[in-house]
Design a protein around this nucleic acid. Structure first.
Lengths: 195, 195
DNA sequence: CTAGAATGAACGGTGGTTCAGTCATCGGGA
DNA sequence: TCCCGATGACTGAACCACCGTTCATTCTAG
């Protein structure tokens, strides 16, 4: 493996190209041009075009989960952690429009994305959320009758849908403004006391 | 337009083929074979391959919204309507595995699905949910400080994520079993009184 | 017999992938 | 210091498999 940060350059270029044209309508040569290299060079670092998408997703998702885990660890209790998580989730997407487009729209390519590669990374995000909910339950902050696995998927789905709508819309409003409402409704749904 | 129910046959065949191979890896000739016709015949009824996907989605979505609207109208109040809606949403997917696969996984083809065609149909489903929430607010069942647009997307996202996870998993459990928990958590999140 | 529905072989554009050739870098010998 | 050859990263034109689409022809119902 020659140039050690060329893969990163290629991935960064791919994010921009995919955001602009969509995965399917992006040529490998487009990514190469965007990265300022020849198309053949890409095959020194990635096995196939799909491999670029899969690697891109894995990397971004792993980064995000690590970032989120670190950030919420500073919060005092489970409820605060959830609020922080929602805020961060929206913040990271709002900060990087190209990434948001790719993650919310282009990455959902049928089989490629959902089965196989993504499974592990997504479930580590789910595990993080579930662990916070369990922690909250131990601390008596979250109702004992809440199925945490289901609640985890609900929260993720809720955030994901808000994000997707925001990306598909003209991004007229600030996604971050919805964070408080989302966290409040979810927490009211699972917490013991009114929040 | 010659044979009046040939389009339907083609769409039904397409659902099965897409569920099996995914949209991108399905050939038009595969759909033709599944429908028991020649590939050229498809072009008497559909303009392009994309057109099949778009029409399929439009039709299924329109049917679903009409069905849902009809079914929940019989319920006594907004809270009961939401419970019914969640149950129905899961039920319809659980009843038709091929459709579930296509709707939850294959239909999310980047630009094709999200922008353009789907927008109108999806927003009519959103409108239905929002109208129920607004009705509940009028009746004093739902808190006045709930932003119904946001709550709508949250509920849809929650249901959608549960459904996707169920499709991607081995379908080991019954999706319908999650319906009560989903409705309960959501309603606790938005309703005035404990539910 | 005829209209027009259906056929499916063949066309043509596309674009992922390859690989023979080019170029940049660097170590060591004169 | 300068030159030379070797190494291997990089290039991009060309290849070719693939498949959506077309349309000349066949079939069939009335």
């Amino acid at each position: 493996m020659p140039d050690p940060d060329k893969p990163q350059q290629i991935i960064d270029a791919a994010v921009r190209v995919f955001a602009r044209n969509g995965y399917y309508h992006s040529r490998v040569s487009d990514i190469a041009r965007e990265a300022g290299i020849a198309s053949g060079t890409i095959y020194l670092y990635f096995k196939t075009k799909d491999d670029i998408l899969v690697t891109l997703f894995r990397e971004k998702m792993a980064d995000w989960v690590a970032h989120a885990r670190r950030e919420i660890s500073g919060e005092p209790d489970a409820l605060a952690k959830i609020r922080r998580l929602v805020a961060l989730h929206f913040q990271v997407l709002e900060t990087d429009p190209d990434l948001a487009e790719v993650v919310q729209v282009e990455l959902r390519q049928g089989h490629k994305f959902f089965r196989g590669a993504s499974a592990h990374e997504v479930s580590s995000y789910f595990a993080l959320i579930t662990s916070v909910l369990d922690e909250g339950m131990q601390a008596g902050l979250i109702r004992r009758d809440v199925p945490t696995k289901i609640a985890t998927k609900m929260l993720f789905g809720a955030m994901d849908q808000l994000a997707t709508s925001w990306v598909l819309g003209k991004r007229t409003y600030r996604l971050t403004d919805a964070a408080d409402a989302v966290a409040a409704i979810f927490l009211k749904g699972v917490a013991v006391h009114a929040v």
